[in-house]
Amino acid sequence: MVTKGMEANEQEQREKQRFPPCNAEWSSAKGSRLWCSQKSGGVHRDWIGVPRKLYKPGAKEPHCVCVRTTGPPSDQQDNPRHSNRGDLDNPNLEEYTGCPPLAVTCSFPL
């Protein structure tokens, strides 16, 4: 049981490195804002990324993650024939309506 728990934690950490959580803020005056930075979600990395909805199997709602926009997909690091779109083509991701596809920040006024 302990081993399974440790494996699940390691998997969660790998997923967080691949898709770190977005920064988010909300105010009654301005509405919501989501954005990515090189350390959003507490995950330090050499890329910024763009906000996307990540749908996880079994989860009721998606959550905002930062997605790498260049290079090979994370699951194809050794593939020399990639589309240079990072993880943007992952089937579990969805763009935010009203947010430009490569915007680092998305605002949703009230």
Rank of each mutant, 00 (worst) to 15 (best):
3 T>A: 15
68 R>D: 00
91 P>L: 12
110 L>A: 13
72 P>F: 00
71 G>S: 09
25 E>N: 12
51 P>G: 03
51 P>Y: 01
64 C>N: 03
46 D>C: 04
58 G>F: 09
44 H>I: 10
20 P>W: 12
78 D>T: 04
32 S>F: 13
104 V>K: 07
103 A>K: 04
66 C>S: 04
3 T>C: 12
37 S>Q: 04
48 I>R: 05
37 S>C: 09
36 C>Y: 05
68 R>G: 00
63 H>W: 11
68 R>H: 01
77 Q>A: 11
82 H>E: 02
68 R>E: 01
106 C>W: 02
60 K>I: 04
27 S>L: 07
20 P>N: 09
109 P>V: 13
61 E>M: 07
35 W>E: 07
76 Q>A: 06
98 G>Q: 08
104 V>R: 10
96 Y>P: 08
80 P>S: 01
104 V>T: 15
96 Y>F: 15
15 E>L: 14
33 R>S: 05
15 E>G: 03
31 G>W: 13
79 N>H: 05
93 L>A: 04
33 R>A: 08
14 R>I: 10
28 S>N: 08
68 R>V: 00
49 G>F: 05
26 W>T: 12
110 L>C: 12
23 N>W: 03
88 L>M: 08
100 P>C: 03
75 D>G: 07
20 P>T: 13
75 D>W: 02
54 L>A: 01
18 R>K: 10
24 A>N: 11
106 C>N: 04
73 P>F: 00
92 N>C: 02
20 P>E: 09
2 V>W: 12
23 N>Q: 12
46 D>V: 06
34 L>H: 06
46 D>S: 14
28 S>A: 11
66 C>L: 05
49 G>C: 09
77 Q>L: 13
103 A>L: 05
86 G>N: 03
66 C>D: 02
67 V>L: 03
9 N>C: 11
57 P>W: 01
46 D>H: 08
56 K>A: 09
61 E>T: 10
38 Q>D: 14
86 G>W: 02
37 S>A: 12
26 W>P: 02
6 M>I: 15
28 S>K: 04
3 T>W: 11
37 S>D: 14
106 C>L: 08
82 H>I: 03
88 L>A: 00
97 T>E: 15
40 S>N: 08
17 Q>M: 14
37 S>W: 07
